[in-house]
Amino acid sequence: MTTAIKIQDLRKIYSNDFEALKGINLSVEKGEFFGLLGPNGAGKSTIIGIICSLVSKTSGDVKIAGYDIEKNPTEAKRKLGVVPQEFNFNIFEHCEHIVINQAGYYGVPRAIAKARAKILFEELGLTDKSHVAAGKLSGGLKRRLMIARALIHEPEILILDEPTAGVDIALRRSMWQYISGLNQKGLTVILTTHYLEEAEALCNRLAIIDQGRIIADSPTQELLQKLHSETIILYGEFPEIIPELVGFSLRKIDDQTLEVDLLNQQSIDIVMAHLSHHNIPIHRMKNKANRLEEMFVRLVEEAHVQ
């Protein structure tokens, strides 16, 4: 596997002396679906901004597909497609023009760009909006337009900066289905999102940034395994007193709800068998919190304590 993006000792101090990045080291391999998570103001957008040449770095190196963004900007930028957090197209321009012009900025001849735009619009359900001014599109369609625009020059790496903020569930799912399909065909995807369940489901590798520092960087499953325990909620019909189960913590919330704390090595089967043995029916169960969310909160809290 070769490196898609390599960041070394990246620092950024803004003109108001705010130190947004305090020596970031990060590596994204080709073909990965990489998630960059962090609370608001952690430095995610600054990293993305520097990779995309929208923000000037104070020091450090950024390479895209082996090309330094300052020494070989043309080659580096050609590899990259960007879907920004905020809508940033001319709202008066027609959707087709926006996408074809973007191709032109990358040196794609107009005839080729037109053919590609037609295919992308079909895939993203924008065909009937080709000649509509971008400002007249709904929020979801604007997001799709930004994806089409980012893909028109056939980049090797796609950066998605909070792409599903404010997007309804159905559209979010279809968008992820489409992006996952592209990832399976070899496109490297870098995602920043606040929806942690989304990151857990999609990303095969995650980095968590807080206060300008990377506090975790590993494959998603490896990161989740670091959770020592998780809480399961069981719904059923519970008696006044829950029979004790040695080694397990069971808390009755009300007559229909029971919470169970499970350590990493413990199995829910033992709890279920125990309850069944005492004729306590269980109708359904769920995780109390998203596992990644638990991990995220814990790591950020630990970083703040340190």
Binding site: C52, S53, L54, P73, T74, E75, K77, R78, L80, V82, P84, E86, N88, F89, N90, I91, I98, N101, Q102, Y105, Y106, G107, R149
Partner: peptide, 18 residues
């Protein structure tokens, strides 16, 4: 100023255009 205000200047900034 229009492309700065609407931020679509970013379309050009992220591209290889000099």
């Amino acid at each position: 100023y229009g492309v700065r205000f609407q931020k679509n200047i970013e379309e050009m900034q992220v591209s290889p255009m000099s």
